[in-house]
Design a protein around this nucleic acid. Structure first.
Length: 355
DNA sequence: CGACGTGTAAC
DNA sequence: CCTTTTACACGTCG
C-alpha cells in the first residue's frame, strides 16, 4: 500500500494554531532575497480552491490572495520532521517492510501481515488511518494494490482521507482512461513527447508499438512506460540507503563575486556538517551546484579519497567555484549549492564493546 | 569501469 | 515569477 499524509505541512500548521483553521493556509519556502521571493511548499484545500498550489511563486499566490483572508506561513521543517518520524513508526508497526519516500509518504509491504487477504489488507489500512487520526489528529490517503505503482496511483485517486483498493482484475479498467500526464513518473517532457506520437491516454500507451516507443525513449524507458500504462511494477518495497546529501541556497543578489558566493558555501557547509556528523557519514565525491541568473543549473564535482572532513567540502567547493568562473566569466549566479555523494554510513565506528 | 555532467521527475 | 532535496538514467571521456 501507499500512504500519503493529506496536505501535511498545512494540516500541522492548522493544528498548532486553532485561530487559523477554517482559513486558506499557504506554507512557503522564503528564499530571503526579497520580501516575498520564494515558492509555495504546501497549501491546504481551502487555499487550493483559490488556485494556490505547491510550487507556485509566493508573489503569484499573494496576488491571488489579495483582499482575502489567506494565511501565509514559513516552513518549519524541524517540527514536521518530528511528527513525521512518529507517523513512520506507527506504519512500521503495521507493515512487514516500509519504504519511506518523502517526509509525508511511504510504501508498505503488508504481504505477510495480511496473509495475502485483501480484506485483511483493508483492515490494516483502516487501522493505520485510525491510529494516525487519534494519535496525531491527521488524515491520510491510502492506496492498496498488488504493486507500488498502482498503490501510488490509487492513494492519489481519492483524497483527502481516501482509501482506494485496486485488485488485480481492476487495474486495467482503473488506469486505462488516465491521461499519460497523470501517470506517476511521467512529467512534462515525457508527456510532450508522448502526445506528439498521438499518445494521450494510458490505453493509447499500452497498445502502442514498443519498437516505436524505443525509438523515441530508448529501450529501458520505453519498457517502463508501457509497463506503467498496464499497471505492471515489479519493484520491491525496500528501505533505501541515502546516496547523496545536498544543501542549496539563494544568494542575496545575482553576483559573480567569488568571495560573497564562497561565504554562502561556508554557511551551507555548517548545516551539512550537522547532518554528516549525526549519521557518521563519510563521502568521496563533492559537487558544486550553480544556478545562474537565467535559472540554468550546472554541476561540477571532484572525487577524492574517503573522508568525513567537512573542510574538504569547503576547500574543494571553492576550487570548483573558481573553475566555474574560469569557464563562465560572463555569468552571474542566483543560487549555489553543495553536495556530497559516494556515501558510506560506516556503522562500524568503534564502540566500547569492540575493546 | 569509474568519474563527470546533464536531463527528467517527484516531493 | 522561479524553493529545496533526492534519485536515477544516460552520454561521454579516459
Amino acid at each position: 500500500m501507499h500512504v500519503d499524509i493529506d496536505s501535511f505541512y498545512a494540516s500541522l500548521e492548522e493544528k498548532r494554531n486553532i485561530e487559523i483553521k477554517d482559513k486558506p493556509i499557504v506554507v512557503c519556502v522564503y528564499s530571503g532575497r526579497t520580501e516575498d521571493s520564494g515558492a509555495v511548499s504546501t497549501s491546504n484545500y481551502k487555499a487550493r480552491e483559490l488556485g494556490i498550489k505547491a510550487g507556485m511563486p509566493i508573489v503569484i499566490a499573494k496576488r491571488i490572495a489579495k483582499g482575502k483572508d489567506v494565511i501565509f506561513l514559513p516552513v518549519d521543517m524541524e517540527y514536521y520532521r518530528e511528527v513525521s518520524d512518529r507517523i513512520m513508526e506507527i506504519m512500521e508497526d503495521e507493515a512487514d517492510i516500509i519504504e519511506q519516500v518523502s517526509i509525508d509518504e511511504a510504501y508498505l509491504d503488508v504481504t505477510e501481515k495480511s496473509g495475502r487477504d485483501w480484506n485483511k489488507a483493508i483492515e490494516i489500512a483502516n487501522s493505520i488511518k485510525e491510529k494516525i487520526n487519534s494519535q496525531e489528529d491527521l488524515s491520510v490517503s491510502i492506496g492498496v494494490s498488488s504493486n507500488k505503482f498502482v498503490a501510488k496511483m490509487a492513494s492519489d485517486f481519492q483524497k483527502p482521507n481516501g482509501l482506494t483498493i485496486i485488485k488485480e482484475e481492476d487495474i486495467i479498467p482503473f488506469l486505462e482512461n488516465f491521461k499519460v500526464s497523470k501517470l506517476h513518473g511521467v512529467g512534462q517532457k515525457t508527456t510532450k513527447s508522448l502526445n506528439e506520437l498521438g499518445i494521450e491516454t494510458a490505453r493509447d500507451l499500452s497498445s502502442y508499438d514498443i519498437k516505436e516507443l524505443e525509438r523515441e525513449f530508448g529501450k529501458n524507458k520505453a519498457k517502463l512506460l508501457q509497463e506503467k500504462s498496464l499497471g505492471i511494477d515489479l519493484s520491491p518495497v525496500e528501505p533505501k540507503e541515502k546516496k547523496q546529501l545536498s544543501r542549496i541556497g539563494t544568494l542575496k543578489e545575482d553576483t559573480k563575486e567569488i568571495n560573497s558566493i564562497f561565504e554562502k558555501i561556508v554557511e551551507l557547509s555548517k548545516d551539512m556538517e550537522q547532518r554528516l556528523l549525526k549519521n557518521n557519514v563519510s563521502f568521496r565525491t563533492i559537487s558544486l551546484i550553480t544556478i545562474d541568473n537565467e535559472l540554468k543549473t550546472q554541476t561540477k564535482s571532484e572525487t577524492i579519497s574517503r573522508t568525513k572532513d567537512v573542510q574538504k567540502v569547503v576547500s574543494i567547493s571553492k576550487k570548483l567555484l573558481e573553475k566555474f568562473f574560469e569557464e563562465n566569466s560572463d555569468k552571474k549566479l542566483r543560487r549555489v549549492g553543495i553536495r556530497v555523494s559516494n556515501l558510506d554510513f560506516s556503522k562500524s565506528q568503534k564502540t566500547l564493546d569492540d575493546f
